[in-house]
Computed example of a mutant assay.
Amino acid sequence: MTNTLGVHSLLFTDAWTAASAKAAIDCAARVGFDAIEVLIFDPATIDVAMTRRLARDAGIAIALGMALGVDSDISSLDPAVARRGEATVRRCLDIAEEIGAPCVSGIAYAAFNRYSAPPSEAQKNQVRSALARLDGYAGGKGLKLGLEAVNRYESYLVNTLDEAGALIRSIGARNLFVHMDTFHMNIEETDIAGAIARNADLLGYAHVADNTRGTLGAGGFDFKAFFGALARAGYTGGVTVESFSNARLGPGLAGAIALWRCQWSDAEATAREALAFMRAELAAAAHAARPW
């Protein structure tokens, strides 16, 4: 079984209008990706029928990412905010069902936010309870929900693969998985290969980004070690490139992720280079992992 190779929609645009969505989807399909990931901040802003139609016409699959906001934070001790967060994840799962995506994955356990204090035990227990309910909801639809381990400056509670795996195991979830992201792993993991090996049974999706989040392979991240660890773990899940530039992102999102430099200007060229890079690294890792 081969990995599904995808590209994040934010490589092309941070808007999801009819025109920008068509341009992004058509370019992703033209370059040769299997899937394009669409990020959901607010489910109400996603035109599901349009997205499904454009992807069908282009012959490409849709992957769905998500990130909760501070007003829909499952870990919040404000009951209304926490309820809104759980409802948001449920709606994202509904959208996955409507759009034909197999899962939703991202910051589904807290907000995309820089917290000033760690979560309390009460908050951790609250998140476990919410995720247990969401695990059942996803399973009832035949879907999966991924927990993306992100760095300490973008959320809390799940910063490492081990934390994601421990959270999933603590509630005995059957429909949750660990979502890897090399940009965040580069910051938070002390032993990337070890973290992958320890959580191999729960790995379900991967964002591939260099340490600068710029052109894939042009930074300092050790991709050979990463892809080698995936091959040894028998990972066959999705692999999606994340490469961002303020040439394509507006000031709001660029500011949220501290993207101050223009990393590249040509989105299609960047996407083509990334796809070739991922194919080459996956092939080399698979060859090296063979027992002969």
Rank of each mutant, 00 (worst) to 15 (best):
I95V: 08
G228P: 06
H8G: 06
G136Y: 15
A24L: 00
A209V: 07
T45L: 04
A254E: 05
A197V: 06
G255N: 05
R90V: 08
A258V: 10
T190R: 15
A67V: 01
T160A: 07
D181P: 05
G204I: 12
I46L: 11
N186F: 12
A258D: 09
A283R: 13
E268D: 04
I257K: 03
A276L: 06
F227P: 04
D73N: 11
L259M: 07
A132R: 11
R133Y: 12
I99H: 08
A269D: 04
E188I: 11
A206E: 06
L275I: 04
G106V: 03
C103A: 15
T215L: 15
T182S: 15
A108C: 10
I36H: 00
L68C: 13
V89L: 07
R53H: 12
R272C: 03
H287M: 05
L145G: 08
P119L: 12
K144Y: 11
I95Y: 11
A288Q: 13
R114S: 11
G250V: 03
A23G: 02
A87Y: 06
R174V: 10
A58F: 12
R91N: 01
L230A: 13
R198P: 14
D201F: 11
A130K: 14
A166H: 14
N125V: 03
P291S: 09
D73Y: 13
G219W: 01
M1Q: 09
S72A: 13
N199L: 15
A35F: 02
F223K: 02
D94M: 06
D162G: 08
T212E: 09
D181R: 00
F221A: 05
A44Y: 00
R290E: 13
T270M: 13
Y109S: 00
D181K: 01
Q263D: 04
N175G: 03
N246P: 08
R90Y: 12
A193M: 15
R56Y: 03
E189T: 01
V241H: 00
Y109R: 02
G219R: 06
A132K: 13
V150E: 01
D26I: 09
R232F: 01
A130G: 07
I99V: 14
G204D: 10
L275Q: 06
L64V: 05
G140C: 04
I46W: 01
D14P: 07
G140H: 09
S129Q: 15
A269K: 05
R114P: 01
T215I: 14
S245V: 10
A280D: 11
D222P: 11
V31A: 03
G234D: 04
L93H: 11
R213A: 00
F277I: 02
E188P: 06
L147S: 09
K124D: 14
R213D: 03
R213M: 07
G204L: 14
D181S: 00
R279D: 03
D78C: 01
M180N: 11
G220V: 02
I168A: 03
I36P: 05
N3Y: 10
E268S: 04
R52G: 07
L161E: 10
A193L: 12
A193T: 06
K124T: 12
A288K: 08
E188M: 12
L282C: 12
M66V: 11
D210G: 04
S75M: 13
A289V: 03
G217R: 07
G238P: 05
A15K: 10
S72R: 13
A132Q: 15
A96D: 08
A271V: 03
Y156M: 10
R279C: 07
L143F: 11
L134R: 04
A110T: 15
A247C: 08
W292R: 07
